[in-house]
Structure formats: structure tokens, C-alpha cells
Design a protein around this nucleic acid. Structure first.
Length: 239
DNA sequence: CCCTGATTCGC
DNA sequence: GCGAATCAGG
């Protein structure tokens, strides 16, 4: 399988949407989890809560853990980056743990400030949605009450030209995605009816208000996965 | 054990 | 560029 535009887009969206590499690999098909991760990194996507962050390595159990593989190949375990400049932010040192207080990091302040691009809607409510905590990816986490109407609805925009085909007249395809429409996927990528929500986004977020409520839930501990409700993409494909 | 993402390195 | 092998943590 090759990385077509569609597959890359699906990978990016699912990755940003919080799906695991395994889920993405399964969804795409024909690729392994490692391929997804490798591609994601090559695309420049990375971070996201990863179990491995520590730069510290202990060589105590390395040899022991490698019993499965016959020691037939030399193991270059060195990363001699003596003078590695490391220009950009290489590692986010500490991932912001869910903070109960509105204390927001730089990303939060940035988001809050970037919220009013469509601030023509002055309803007297000049405040941005109350920040309850900061999510794993630096997302603002809002209280349940605030999720329904965090942003005052903006005045209606200009009408967009009609779609060429009535088949997809009301569907938002991959090519229709932009910064203003909800990117929440509906259905499965690759299938004819796969499309995106297309609702007007909650400003500052890639999804509409409703799907923000689905996308930005408190990340549960690894032990308890979310089986029932919030599975995006219509859940795992049943073949 | 299982899972996760990160990294390396031969291709 | 790709991804299996490997590493490392939960």
C-alpha cells in the first residue's frame, strides 16, 4: 500500500483526533501500526501522550528482554548527538496534567486569544468559554455546561456555491474541509459515503461545538478504554 | 502478558 | 520515504 493523499489525510485526522496508531492502521488497512507511527512522524505529527517520554535509559533489562530474538545482529544502541542543536521544541518536557484550576499554559492563552476571529458577534458576552482544564494535547477542556454554547453563534455567512452532484450535495468531502467546517468524520474513509460533519466549527477548534464535546473528553486512564459511546468513525469496521 | 508511541536503520 | 525491529513506559 502506498501513502496516497487520502490515506495521509485520514492518518493525519485520525492522529490529531486522538485515535491510536493501531486504530488508524486498522482503519487504513494494509499498513502496520509501526508504519502509521513512522508516517505520522515523517509528516511532522507527533507528540500526543506517549507512554515513553523519559530520556533516561537503563541497560539492565535490555539483554534480558531480548531473549526472543537470537542475538545475531549487532545492536547499535547509541545516539551520539554530541552537538545536536535541537532547534525547535524537541520534547514537551511535561505534559499538562488535567488542571482543575483555570490556570492555562501558553497554549491555552494562545487559544483563548485566537478564539475571537469571528468576534463580530458581540452579545455582551465578551468572555471566552471558561477553561476548566487543559487536555493532553493542550486542548482546552470545558465544563459540560459550557460545551453546549461556548461561542455565541456568528452571523450567517455568505452562501457557498452548490455542489456539483446532488449525491454529495450535503456531504462534506475531504476536499471541502477548511478551517471553518467541522472535520469530524462520518462513516469510514474509503467508502463512498464517507464524509465529514461540515458544521461550522467552534472557533479555535477543528470541530463544531457538538463534536468538540465528543472529541475533547477527559482522557481516561489506560486501563479503562472508552468502549461504548465516543467511538469516532462509526467504530471499528466490521468485515 | 497486553497495550502505547518513539526511534533506529536497512532497504 | 518506508516500515520492521527495537526500545521503553503504562
Amino acid at each position: 500500500m502506498s501513502w496516497t493523499e487520502e490515506r495521509i489525510e485520514t492518518l493525519r485526522k485520525m492522529w490529531e483526533g486522538g485515535s491510536t496508531a493501531s486504530q488508524i492502521a486498522e482503519e487504513l488497512g494494509g499498513v502496520s501500526r509501526n508504519a502509521v507511527i513512522g508516517k505520522a512522524h515523517r509528516l511532522g505529527l507527533k507528540s500526543r501522550p506517549s507512554p515513553v517520554k523519559s530520556g533516561e535509559k537503563k541497560d539492565t533489562k535490555k539483554a534480558a528482554a531480548k531473549t526472543a530474538k537470537p542475538a545475531e545482529k549487532p545492536k547499535p544502541k547509541e545516539k551520539p548527538q554530541a552537538s545536536a542543536p535541537a532547534p525547535a521544541a524537541p520534547k514537551t518536557a511535561a505534559r499538562p496534567a488535567p488542571a482543575p484550576a483555570p490556570k492555562a499554559g501558553p497554549s491555552a492563552a494562545e487559544l483563548a486569544k485566537a478564539t475571537p476571529p469571528a468576534a463580530e458577534a458581540d452579545k455582551g458576552e465578551k468572555d471566552v468559554p471558561k477553561i476548566v482544564s487543559v487536555g493532553p494535547g493542550g486542548f482546552l477542556r470545558q465544563g459540560p455546561g459550557d460545551q453546549q454554547a461556548p461561542i455565541p453563534p456568528a452571523p450567517p455567512r455568505r452562501l457557498v456555491p452548490a455542489k456539483p452532484s446532488p449525491e454529495i450535495a450535503d456531504k462534506t468531502s475531504l476536499l471541502d474541509l477548511n478551517d471553518r467546517v467541522c472535520r469530524w468524520p462520518m462513516g469510514h474513509p474509503g467508502e463512498p459515503d464517507f464524509h465529514f460533519c461540515g458544521e461550522k466549527v467552534n472557533p479555535g477548534f477543528p470541530y463544531c461545538v457538538e463534536h468538540c464535546g465528543r472529541a475533547y473528553q477527559a482522557q481516561l486512564p489506560r486501563g479503562s478504554r472508552r468502549p461504548p459511546p465516543p467511538l469516532p468513525f462509526g467504530g471499528p469496521r466490521v468485515r
